[in-house]
Design a protein around this nucleic acid. Structure first.
Ligand SMILES: [Zn+2]
Ligand SMILES: [Zn+2]
Ligand SMILES: [Zn+2]
Ligand SMILES: [Zn+2]
Lengths: 140, 140
DNA sequence: CGCTGAAGCGTTACAACATAACATGTCTGT
DNA sequence: ACAGACATGTTATGTTGTAACGCTTCAGCG
């Protein structure tokens, strides 16, 4: 996790962006969780001494983290996860377990979908994919 | 549109389900729109004489329409569209224009993603894909 | 027919999620 | 020091979605 925070710091410097306190704090919370976090979970957990943050603080941080690729929003859960992949600037793809709530990011291959988009005349900027089902542990 | 409503009636009968008044009305509104509709747009447009519906009325109808495959929810827009494909029980895939708001459903091919899921031990029940970009008209 | 259970609906109230707007602070270059 | 850009704090409000309850409708059955 210190590694991930350090890496984020690096990539901020490279992008001429600043990993300010609220941004760092929200990233920290995401990295420290073992599953997707809702915005209001982050708001509640934000303060070191138990005081919650105000919503805009967290939402602004999340917007930044998404923009720089440090976190992803999972639309079908209204929740956020830290990016667990190395590739830079990738689209988001998740396997979501409907039983235990786990959300595993995987390396997306959108070749087929890009072809379909091109065929329809669309220029694609970003893709999100969310597959819902059961993880290996919950499947038995 | 009368065709689509009729087809829905058929498929309900086959599935031992009922296309009741509120369900039919919401489907009608979706079919009559040229773009994705928000739940509260439907709520506002519901009444013939201008009176809105109560939220649960519309949300329950939407849940039904999704369950039977007559409509899809577009997560990244919090909006709904009628299904425009013939295939039954398919996953949802959309090309979304960030310029004009159009959302075009296309026939998804998730072969690559299913392989990735299987590799990770996941059993997939449903997939949604949302590609954001610019449509042919907005691209110039 | 009248009973019963299941599904659907109407209604109230509320919970969860997200943003607008404006004042204040903090960096950065000149 | 100053100006401009960016970031933050704060208040208030807007948007989206549900819980819970009672009533109605409908199909199956004695
Ligand atoms: Zn990622
Ligand atoms: Zn699981
Ligand atoms: Zn469809
Ligand atoms: Zn367009």
């Amino acid at each position: 996790m210190q590694r991930a925070l350090g890496a984020a710091e690096m990539r901020c410097a490279q992008a001429q962006e600043r990993l300010t306190d609220p941004r760092r704090r929200v990233l920290e919370l995401l990295l420290g969780s073992d599953g997707p976090l809702k915005a209001y979970d982050l708001i509640a957990a934000y303060g070191e001494a138990g005081e919650p943050a105000k919503p805009p603080t967290v939402y602004r941080a999340l917007e930044f983290l998404e923009r720089l690729g440090f976190a992803h929003r999972i639309e079908s859960l209204n929740a956020y996860v830290p990016c667990r992949l190395d590739a830079d600037g990738h689209s988001a793809a998740f396997l979501i377990c409907e039983c235990c709530g786990a959300a595993e990011e995987f390396e997306p291959d959108f070749t087929a979908q890009f072809a379909a988009a091109a065929h329809a005349g669309y220029t694609v900027r970003a893709v999100t994919l969310e597959a819902r089902g059961a993880c290996a542990a919950c499947r038995r």
